[in-house]
């Protein structure tokens, strides 16, 4: 059975996290992943504390296993949700889209294990200095907000730079990806897109179908021109219009921010797969079947185990 320091650290069976996906990772999905032996994560996204409290309650009603909350640091409600997770004493907090150091003292004081998502060595070192128990090194193969480095490049560099455990994210959807990540030095993996199509995921069925139908070159990145808000999503009318506008000479950073407003909700809740923003990773082409979260975890870990056991075959 695959196990690592991350399992001991968090009291989970398999070193697999489910990524925090805005409008998608709710209490129900997080509980299903945790029940399956991984670490489910609720996305606090741009919502206020009442939404998050409700999702935490939902998860606690469905599982007594540990789960996490992902705090999006660019959220207008970041201060109140940061305080709520401390009050609720959730087991794990992961963070995205920024530097979490100002909120970390209150989380650590509440006994929370803090695991920031990082996109560079400098961010990983800062997280370690601030008391993070581990970091998630995320490559730009991921869906949603991304950095510049690929998973293959960032994971070993972060592993070399910090002494805390590292999880790999971005472009991982099966046992091959997990085994490769562990060969790069990761102690576990985080998957988003693969769990987006879990049976327990409440995202609109049309969004799921779009991911299941997507191929290797189905995703593009938007928001690169002005930096700081680059997102990977599935090509559709929304991305074509976005990219056309993004590169017009007269377009400003404010116009770009305006273009994105409401687009996630349109896709995830309303199921508008043409005019909504379908965040998904490059690995969408490998995701072919909807199945229960526990089954996803079982398949991925079993396959990784076979591959890792066979790794010695390469050495003559």
């Amino acid at each position: 059975m695959i196990s690592s320091q991350i399992c001991d650290l968090l009291g989970i069976r398999y070193p697999i996290f489910q990524g925090g996906m805005a409008w998608i990772s709710d209490g129900k999905l997080a509980a299903a992943v945790s029940e399956g032996g991984g670490l489910g994560i609720i996305s606090a996204m741009n919502a206020d504390k009442n939404y998050l409290r409700e999702q935490i309650r939902t998860a606690r009603n469905l599982t007594d296993k540990p789960f996490g909350v992902n705090i999006m640091l660019m959220s207008p409600h970041v201060a109140e949700v940061a305080a709520l997770v401390a009050e609720e004493k959730v087991a794990v907090v992961t963070t995205g889209a920024g530097r979490p150091t100002q909120y970390m003292p209150q989380w650590l004081e509440a006994g929370i294990t803090v695991i920031p998502v990082v996109a560079s060595v400098a961010m990983a070192k800062m997280a370690q200095d601030a008391g993070a128990a581990a970091v998630i090194a995320e490559g730009q193969e991921s869906g949603g907000h991304i950095g510049e480095l690929t998973t293959m490049a960032i994971v070993p560099q972060v592993c070399d730079a910090v002494s805390i455990p590292v999880l790999a994210a971005g472009g991982i959807a099966d046992g091959r990806g997990m085994a490769a990540a562990m060969m790069l030095g990761a102690q576990g993996v985080q998957m988003g897109t693969r769990f987006l199509v879990a049976c327990e995921c409440s995202v609109h069925p049309a969004y799921k179908q779009a991911v299941l139908k997507a191929g290797d070159i189905s995703t593009v990145t938007t928001g690169r021109r002005f930096g700081g808000n680059t997102c990977r999503c599935i090509k559709n009318t929304f991305t074509r219009n976005f990219l056309k506008t993004e590169y017009l000479p007269e377009t400003t950073a404010e116009d770009i921010a305006e273009l994105g407003v409401g687009s996630l909700r349109r896709a995830a809740i309303e199921g508008d797969v043409k005019n909504g923003c379908l965040l998904a990773g490059q690995i969408s082409g490998l995701v072919r079947e909807e199945m229960p979260a526990a089954e996803i975890i079982r398949q991925v870990t079993e396959e990784a185990e076979i591959l890792l056991k066979g790794a010695s075959l390469w050495v003559k």
Partner: peptide, 19 residues
Amino acid sequence: DSLDIAELVLNLENEFGVK
């Protein structure tokens, strides 16, 4: 970009010995 700024902040912290 924001990653460069994180790098700059880390370098500044190391150089000046502050947070």
